[in-house]
Design a protein around this nucleic acid. Sequence first.
DNA 1: AATAAAAATACAAACGTTTACATTTTTTGC
DNA 2: GCAAAAAATGTAAACGTTTGTATTTTTATT
Lengths: 343, 343
Amino acid sequence: MKRKRSRKGAPGIVEVAARAGVSIATVSRAFNEPEKVRGPTRVRIEEAANDLGYIRDRMAGTLHNRFSGTIGLIVPTIDNAIFAELIESFSARLLDHDRTTLIASNGYDLAQEVPIVRSLLERRIDGIALVGLDHEEVPLTMLSQRDVPIISIWNYQQDATIPCIGSDNHQAGSIVTEHILNLGHKDIAFLFPETTNNDRARNRREGAMRAIAASGLNLPEERIITCGYNIETAKRITRQLLNDNPPTAIICGNDVIARGAIYACHAENIPVPEKISIVGIGDFTGSSSMEPGLTTVRFHARKIGKLAADVIVNMSETGFDPSPFSQKVDLSFYDRGSTRRLN
Amino acid sequence: MKRKRSRKGAPGIVEVAARAGVSIATVSRAFNEPEKVRGPTRVRIEEAANDLGYIRDRMAGTLHNRFSGTIGLIVPTIDNAIFAELIESFSARLLDHDRTTLIASNGYDLAQEVPIVRSLLERRIDGIALVGLDHEEVPLTMLSQRDVPIISIWNYQQDATIPCIGSDNHQAGSIVTEHILNLGHKDIAFLFPETTNNDRARNRREGAMRAIAASGLNLPEERIITCGYNIETAKRITRQLLNDNPPTAIICGNDVIARGAIYACHAENIPVPEKISIVGIGDFTGSSSMEPGLTTVRFHARKIGKLAADVIVNMSETGFDPSPFSQKVDLSFYDRGSTRRLN
DNA sequence: AATAAAAATACAAACGTTTACATTTTTTGC
DNA sequence: GCAAAAAATGTAAACGTTTGTATTTTTATT
């Protein structure tokens, strides 16, 4: 049973114009190009709008000029706290730009992006931010066919085919690995999430492997473990590892896994870092407060989110030539308590 | 320099109609009331739409019938993992209903809600979900003036003035407090976030205080501590408490604070639960995996999110009489390792 | 096969803005 | 003060759909 919403107390531009004693065109201009309407007139219009509680209808405007003031954001997951800071800073910044955020998550399933992109396109987004560089052709084509600017966030790759803003995940992987190697560790385990369709995890692992290779170390295959993207799984897998054949160091694909690994050590009464060193990647909220504090490399999520918001708004306004918009955000390494020199 | 988006490869309903050899009205009906168009015609239209890669323009439709297919969601924060599950389930469920989610956070500042609501209203949301029951008059009036259905989520109060879906925060507070009391604790500290403008925290604290009062216990004022809503602050405040005058149990306003408190105990080498019992509220992701596992009361965030999505869609479609839409979602108490009987 | 009733489709007028273009008002230069 | 130029405002035609009403086609009835 469909219902037609009554317009009750909702005045339109027509009512405002009538009350201010001007034409609707002038009212429209007063909002969009205030400098084009004379002071006293503008004041009268503003008063009328205020008195009436006028709220402009962007949809009607969008219909005409094709800009909706809405930006899409697709993340793998909202849960897990991984992208929370990113989403928060991105959407807050967009609000500063007088834009709103249409959010959706694909649950790490790229196929999901097709219906999501379609749904966003139906709402005429002015631009879209996608986490990571791995995406299917179809949604990308749908977007570019309609001239909707795309920005990839979180991962930075020099040779990326879409403009991207983020940090170098290769580098993140190598930084923590080199740290572990420098501390003299030889028996190292890798705990990384599934890397198909996940360029961030893949790059991190590649960076880590490269650092291992560069050091001349040879890592047996069973030390490279794939681990689900959540604390419980990481904890369970680590406990098993500790019981089977504990390494002296564990390099985790991200801080969530590292947190699980540290809890596993607590559960098995293996002191960190005395018996085992653990590093994460990401520096999520809480990583610094853990006991021991987690040694990790920080992704400046808020900075990335803010930057991405600025850039996508700019792209949507000016038209765009992809290349100049890519930006690399530096990483920061934090040597906290979860790692220790082997002696 | 404003740019007019070219319509390049974007066909409209007109092109589809031409290709299918029918009028645009028929195409529109084929999408909105498929049962009203004859089989063969419908097929032809669908083919034409597919071939052309047609994506409907909801804005144009909205302009006419006043439904945008977009629902607003305002949370205090996206970060902190507190509302992550809620947001995720809410938005995923909306996508199932063919709706999109317009998200914004107020940073625990209710005044922020005015511009946010205005911004959402400009985009013609079909409904809005607000976390908690504490809100200012102005945004509420703006919404109801325009007949936009409102639902409050997360907290449930029988006598709430807006329909709400969530759990009883009073009860949550009393459950954990009674648990602590039953274990024989007498020297208890409260660690709760600021409660002005935060009905959830306030109700939890009231529930907890009520349970204390019912037991006949008298809690000195300095044991009721206000604590920032993040791990670091909770950790710092707890460490100070442990050094000054450690209680035998700490009741935390939520799991984030409890996590900080447990880390503080680790840092001070005070074993949990041997020397001190700690309870949280919420059962956030990771609370069960901690060492020790956190004793807490679970808010079924995914259930609340899903239910809320169903209800707000229903309200937007059918018109609404607030009262029957409120729903209380039961809590689950988990007695894990962070509490212990005093002897 | 003719007619009435029902179903499917077409026509055209909204929906609430923006923006060329036309018109009016104000300012400027002498 | 007057004409010309500049600025402000008004008029009306879009924008891409939905939907009430009119028309055509199909189905049912005799």
